[in-house]
Design a binder for these strands. Structure first.
Length: 489
RNA sequence: GACGCCGUGCCCGAGUUGGUAAAGGGGGAAGUCUGCAAAACUUUUAAUAAUGGUUCAAAUCCGUUCGGCGUCUCCA
């Protein structure tokens, strides 16, 4: 494995301090990382995918540096309110009624779907993927403790976190740096329909369920279901401890979700639960947030027919995770062309190895280049810069092929290993060469032979017709010096 | 209204704890190659939103303006 040699220069942008900070794990060599996963009531869209792909890059790089990562990503299958003014239904229940299936069946269906999509994008599975519905008992225990400590109160079968009590002792909103009073002042929507709560700013830990609510559990406060913010606090506490290294998620979860999590944890044990908060930025469509509720969404299968999952992943990683990324097919086409060139260079490298030219000194400094790759990733996971360095390596390979530059066998191997490991392990991309089924391949070979014969006889009519007709059905013939290559369109 | 973020060439996109010539990709142009075409390779092209200020030095820090976006409702 790779040694953790660069840890003193490895920096992560921490939303809490709004600065890049040198990463120092709680336990040397280990990283505990919690990611807010998806609410499984609908197909994941490309915006969700961007977040999980960005965070996959982060997990991969931790591991690449040699850290042992416990990667926990939850499944929200209960408790996420569709609309707080409507007490009866949460997202899962509502969709289950529409689809006429059991809520659990719905959650299962979309969980499978999420897995299959993320698998396609080569995102690594979490080590633990806990679901909210599987941790009802733990959540009830935490609510009990919060009530006992005086930070929560029960009214008519629902339990709320008492922010006034909390604010008396601690600061609320340290992550978003929002002033809850001022925030509520300017937002009239928040003032409606809060008859149950002592204060509008209090948020629910447990909600009473009426008979129509399918997903409900028995609790000391009657039948109900847990609030959304509680599940992450509960499950991260259970699997990573009361204070852990990294908590990550989409930027839209910063407030109120993550600030509420912090309030819950601090109420519980008095400590800020996380050292490094990482927030990924949004994927926009026509400049606006891609969102299920707004409806401007692109689903993975909408574009997987036009672009491979690798190209989409490459496209996403070409932008830094903290920058807004606007979806456009034009940019995707650019990414596709660049990606293919990069893959070609791996094949060119093989050609250079086969040539086996022996030199005693190198004309290029591969060690310096390798360090630049690390520097890019060490600077808050700067994948666009890493990709730029891979393109530089591609140009080096071309120069080697032309004989303009030379590398010793050792340096050549170093170049290959570094390039491949960053490409495959860190960026999580694949070096895939499209291949035909054997019979199609034989037929193509046969046609190319006929065409080659025609070309030798300068029968351009036959040779051009073969090329034209094959192009029509998706095969592009490329005539090189001695051979004809087939490109699948 | 409160709290934030962003604006880099034709397009995408690094650089934003101030400092050598502002990465990289795509596109355009020219060339090499070539029966033609394509591909590949080489070279080349062009930018810091506007305006003040701080500084020996600003894309980077501060002010103002314009434009875009996010959160405060459920969100990745």
């Amino acid at each position: 494995m790779h040694k953790i040699t660069t840890k003193e220069t490895f920096k992560i942008y921490n939303t809490l301090s709004r600065k890049k900070e040198v990463f120092m794990p709680i336990i040397s060599g280990h990283v505990g990382m919690y990611v807010c996963g998806a609410t499984v009531y609908n197909d994941v869209h490309l915006g969700n995918c961007r977040t999980f792909i960005s965070l996959d890059l982060i997990v991969r790089y931790f591991r690449y540096l040699g850290y042992k990562v416990r990667y926990v990503r939850n499944i929200t299958d209960v408790g996420h309110l569709e609309d707080e003014t409507n007490d009866s239904y949460d997202k899962i229940t509502k969709k289950a009624l529409i689809e006429r299936i059991e809520p659990m069946e719905l959650a299962q269906k979309y969980t499978y779907y999420l897995h299959s999509i993320l698998d396609k994008f080569n995102a690594l599975s979490p080590n633990i993927e806990p679901s909210a519905s599987g941790h009802i008992i733990e959540q009830i225990e935490i609510i009990k403790m919060l009530i006992k400590k005086g930070f929560a109160y029960e009214i008519d079968g629902s339990v709320y976190l008492d922010l006034n009590t909390y604010i008396y002792r601690y600061k609320y909103g340290i992550l978003s740096r929002s002033n809850i009073e001022k925030t509520l002042e300017g937002n009239s929507r928040c003032l409606k329909n809060r008859r149950q709560k002592r204060n509008t700013k209090d948020f629910s830990l447990w909600k009473k369920a009426d008979d129509a609510h399918i997903m409900q559990w028995m609790s000391p406060w009657g039948r109900g279901f847990p609030g959304w913010h509680l599940e992450c606090t509960t499950m991260s506490l259970k699997y990573l401890g009361d204070v852990f290294d990294v908590h990550a998620g989409g930027i839209d979860l910063k407030f109120p979700h993550h600030d509420c999590e912090i309030a819950q944890s601090i109420s519980l044990h008095g400590k800020i639960p996380v050292h490094y908060w990482i927030h990924t930025n949004l994927l926009t469509l026509n400049g606006e947030k891609m969102s299920k509720s707004i409806g401007n969404t692109i689903f993975p299968f909408d574009i997987l027919t036009k672009f491979s999952s690798d190209v989409i992943r490459f496209f996403i990683l070409q932008t830094h995770y903290r920058k807004i990324l606007d979806f456009s097919s034009k940019a995707l086409v650019s990414a596709k062309i660049g990606y293919n060139r990069l893959i070609e260079s791996f094949l060119t490298l093989e050609v250079i190895f086969r040539r086996n030219i022996k030199v005693s000194t190198s004309t290029l400094n591969i060690i310096t280049w390798k360090q630049k790759c690390y520097d890019a990733m060490n600077d808050d996971f700067n994948s666009p810069r890493l990709i730029a360095h891979l393109f530089e390596a591609m140009h080096c390979i071309h120069s080697l092929l032309e004989g303009d530059e030379y590398l010793t066998y050792y340096d050549l191997k170093l170049l290959e290993n570094t390039m491949k490991s960053f490409f495959l392990e860190v960026l999580g991309l694949k070096i895939k060469i499209k291949k035909q089924t054997s019979k199609v391949e034989e037929l193509l070979k046969f046609l190319i032979e006929i065409r080659s014969k025609a070309r030798k006889e300068k029968n351009w009519v036959i040779s051009d017709n073969i090329r034209k007709d094959l192009f029509k059905i998706g095969y592009n013939l490329l005539d090189n010096e001695n051979e004809t290559k087939v490109e699948v369109i």
